[in-house]
Structure formats: structure tokens, C-alpha cells
Amino acid sequence: MTEFDLVDTDGAEIPGDEWDEIDVSESEADAVGRKQDREFLEFRKRIKDADQFKVTDSVFDDATLAALYKLVQDGHVAAFGGPLSTGKEANVYLAAGDDRDVAVKIYRINASDFRAMRDYLDGDPRFEGIGSDKRKVVVAWTKKEFANLMRARDAGVRVPEPIAVQRNVLVMEFLGRDGERAKRLSEVAVENPETAYEVVREYTRRLYRAGLVHGDLSEYNVVVHDGELYVLDLGQAVTVHHPNSRDFLERDCRNVAAFFSRQGYEVTGEAMFEYVTEPEPEP
């Protein structure tokens, strides 16, 4: 692994507005799904008949297909490829965008772990009043990941560029080469664990100073792309106002420290937590 440069050293000056609202009202995709015009019906048939989607047909209910249809109409997706990853809450697919490959992350409405999501949504001021409507919870989760990615980029953290969001579908930059996704830290030999640790630690501090805690940070959602480290999966990230944000941050620090200690660089979660939460210097 090559040396990692920190990015945008002055990019985390403004913490951002932790009170941005997330709109979970019916979208254009919902209207398209209800209308079911001829072009949409043809699109639905093509997707359902495509070999790469047959094993994951449960992901593609009509509302999700309508969201994909809207993203195609808007020019964010031109053609779909195969799956990059599958999980309990979401599948990620390779797709061709307007001028580059993109990753399309589709959250399952019916199969998502509603209770696990609730632990992160409850107490987040951006999601008050959603209630127990599962569709609204999953839509909020998807839009939350888009908003978190935007804020992370503004804070100088390398993450996939968020491109578009529609209902339970998120389009973002594809990290990888020739259709192969970038390797996770857990999948590579870390040649310089000290430098890699310092980058992850700095990213965690920048997120914190931007008002966010990742909440599930580990070697499984940090990837190596073009010799740089990128952070993935910010769907569960919470604001620092969340009642469990400190517990989530302490767990993130323990996970990161444990991984790099196994790589031969002795660090502790307590030391990382102290670094991350160190007050910003006076201007």
C-alpha cells in the first residue's frame, strides 16, 4: 500500500447544519409507479428479465423499479451491470452513468432490518416525526446516507461522490477498476499501518468536527482506491446531537484501533477517541 495523502486540509472549518430536514413524502417515483405508463412497464419487464437481477428479484418491487426508471429518465443511469455486493439491508450494482461507471445502492423496503435502523434514526433531529411507517424509514435512511456523504465530502473526507437519490435508491461514484470494486482494508496487505491509521483517524476527526459520527467504522467499510483510503457506508452515521453518538464513536475508535493493532501498529481506542474529540484550535 502506498502512502496516503490527507485531503483538503482546510475543508473542515464549517460544521454544517445538523438540522437539515429529510423529506420522506411521496416522490416522483411513487407517482410513476402508480401511473404505470407503457414505457415504465417496458422498463420493468427488461429489469425483471435481466439475468443479473433474477437472483435478487425481491429487491425490485414496483416502487423501486419506478425510482430506477426516474433515475434513468434523469440521465443518472444509462445501463445496469451486475451486483457489486449484497447485504441484508441493501444491494449495490454496477451501472453505466452519463460519462462514467457508477454504483447504484438499492435499500430493500421489505427486508431491511427495521429495528436496527431505528437505533440510529431515533434521536437524530433530522428524522423526527417519521413514525413507524417502514417505507418512510427506509426512504429516510437512503436520503440520510446521501446527505451524510455530502457533508463528509465538504469536511475533506474521501467518500464516494453522491450523485442522485430517488426514494430507496442511491447513485454514487463507483470506486474500482474494470468493473471490480475497490478492495476493503480487510482484504489487502497493509504495508504502512501507521500512515493508514493516521488517515482513518484524521477522517474520523473531520467527520466529528462536521457534526457526524460514522457509527459502524471498521476495516470492512474503508477501501483502497487509486492509492487512497475512502470511507463507505454512511447510512447509519448520526449527528453529534444523537443521544448515542458518544457510544457509537467510542466503538468506532475501538474497532479501528483493534484492526491496526493486529497489523503491528500498537494503538488504543482511548487514544484515538481523545484525538478525534480534541477541541478545534481558536482561529
Rank of each mutant, 00 (worst) to 15 (best):
M1I: 07
M1L: 12
L6W: 12
L6I: 10
T9E: 15
I14N: 12
I14C: 08
S25C: 06
S25M: 10
E26F: 11
S27V: 11
E28P: 00
A29G: 14
V32A: 06
D37T: 07
R38A: 12
E42C: 06
K45C: 06
R46A: 10
R46W: 14
K48A: 11
K48H: 14
D49Y: 08
A50P: 01
Q52N: 10
K54A: 09
D57P: 00
D57C: 01
T64V: 12
L65K: 00
L65G: 00
L68H: 06
K70N: 10
F80L: 11
F80A: 04
P83Y: 02
L84S: 02
S85G: 13
S85D: 04
G87M: 03
K88V: 09
A90T: 09
N91D: 15
N91Y: 13
V92D: 00
Y93C: 00
L94E: 09
G97R: 08
G97E: 07
G97A: 10
D98F: 09
R100N: 14
R100W: 08
D101M: 10
V102M: 04
I106Y: 01
I106V: 14
Y107D: 02
N110P: 00
F114T: 14
F114S: 09
A116D: 11
M117K: 12
D122V: 15
D124G: 03
R126K: 14
R126V: 10
E128P: 00
D133V: 07
D133W: 08
D133T: 03
V139G: 00
V139K: 03
V139L: 02
V139E: 03
A140R: 04
K144G: 12
E145K: 00
N148P: 02
N148L: 02
L149Q: 02
M150S: 06
R151A: 03
D154V: 04
G156K: 05
V159D: 04
V159C: 00
A164F: 07
Q166E: 15
Q166H: 12
M172N: 02
E173G: 02
F174D: 00
G176T: 04
D178C: 03
D178K: 11
E180F: 09
R184N: 10
L185Y: 01
E187V: 01
E191G: 06
N192G: 05
P193Q: 14
E194R: 15
Y197G: 03
E198S: 12
V200C: 13
V200Q: 07
R201K: 15
R201H: 04
R201Y: 00
Y203A: 04
R206N: 06
R206I: 05
L207E: 03
G211T: 03
H214S: 04
G215V: 07
E219G: 01
Y220S: 05
V222L: 09
V222W: 03
V223T: 05
V223L: 07
D233A: 01
Q236M: 13
T239W: 06
V240D: 05
P243R: 15
P243V: 15
P243D: 15
D247F: 13
R251E: 15
V256W: 01
F260W: 11
Y265L: 08
E266D: 15
E266Q: 14
T268D: 10
T268W: 07
G269R: 08
M272G: 01
M272T: 07
E278W: 12
E280H: 09
P281N: 09
P281L: 11
